[in-house]
């Protein structure tokens, strides 16, 4: 037996870019975060060939989970075709050999920035959300040591106070994206800056959601069939964006979360934010055979 026979052939990088110890740590932290839903787990966020704040947390989780059989989809604010989404998708395919898709139904792993697809995800799918700021208490407690104690004590009075103040000042809750939500009745998390429209999709969802912040080095998760309740007062109901009556100007899809496109005359047109769903709607209109999944919303109303 020679040393050469025991040595692996040289490779420019590990499979999936991250080295084995990094992936092992990430897997352990993912398991921990699944075991304690909504609780932030620290991890040693590695360098990836992308600037921090551009989805490095989500990317590391995706790189850890990927294998050549998993089909991957990457979306950025609902769009598959943004520069960031396209770059991450190509990178994931390059370093793992995993096939890519734009269709929510065909994906096994979906990495997303700030949106959850409109079609209901299945039990066998994983959603990875990129998180810029994982700490929901940061706005009310800048000292992170105290914030951790507050999480430990489930001391979320200040979060409620923030909502109280918004109602007093503006007559309604002004929190737009990243609405603080109570996971499994214990930990308050920020569900990443998804719109309020998307928060109810996490409640008792069939799929696993992993939220990862690369810059802040925190992972947390919402396991399948876990309660996720936005913080609301008993007498002030939770309200999603009033997009139910809007129609997509390109696909004519109606009753979904829309992007507002301001026009020169001061008016606005709207396009469905989930570009994959919009494209499928157009294809169907053109007579192509397209498969649609069930959607979380129907005419602007939650179906589940």
């Amino acid at each position: 037996m020679s040393l050469k026979s025991l040595t692996k052939p040289w490779q420019p990088m590990s499979y999936g870019f991250l080295d084995a110890s990094a992936k092992r740590e990430l897997r352990r932290k993912m398991l921990k975060s699944v075991a304690v839903p909504g609780c932030q787990m620290p991890y040693a966020s590695r360098e990836v060939p992308m600037a921090r704040g551009w989805g490095t947390g989500g990317l590391q989780v995706s790189l850890t989970l990927l294998n050549p059989q998993l089909r991957v989809k990457v979306i950025d604010q609902g769009a598959d075709d943004s520069v960031n989404a396209a770059s991450i998708r190509r990178f994931l395919a390059l370093v793992s050999g995993a096939p890519v898709t734009l269709d929510t139904l065909g994906a096994d792993l979906i990495q997303s920035r700030h949106r959850i697809p409109e079609e209901i995800m299945r039990e066998d799918q994983i959603l990875v959300l990129q998180v810029p700021n994982p700490e929901p208490l940061r706005s009310v407690q800048p000292n992170m040591s105290i914030a951790r104690q507050m999480h430990a004590d489930a001391d979320y009075g200040r979060m409620w106070l923030q909502l109280y103040e918004q109602i007093v000042r503006s007559g309604r809750v002004m929190q737009g994206a990243g609405y603080p939500s109570l996971v499994n009745g214990r930990h308050v998390m920020t569900p990443s800056p998804i719109p309020r429209w998307d928060v109810p999709k996490l409640n008792m969802a069939k799929h696993l959601t992993i939220l990862s912040a690369g810059r802040e080095k925190r992972i947390f998760a919402v396991p399948p069939y876990t309660r996720v309740k936005p913080l609301v007062f008993d007498d002030v109901p939770y309200r999603v964006e009033d997009h139910g009556g809007l129609t997509c100007s390109r696909s004519t899809a109606k009753g979904f979360f829309m992007n507002e496109i301001p026009q020169v005359d001061g008016s606005s047109t709207y396009e469905v934010s989930d570009s994959s769903y919009g494209v499928k709607t157009i294809q169907k209109r053109d007579g192509d055979a397209v498969q649609f999944g069930e959607t979380w919303y129907n005419d602007g109303e939650m179906t589940q």
């Binding site: 001391d155 009075g157 200040r158 409620w160 109280y164 000042r169 007062f233 008993d234 007498d235």
Partner: peptide
Amino acid sequence: LLMRHSSSGNVAERLLVAGERSFATL
């Protein structure tokens, strides 16, 4: 006191810690 929160919010904070979750009651 939380100097930049409303006066009523300062009082409400104590009630919130004790578990009150009705805006009208607060």
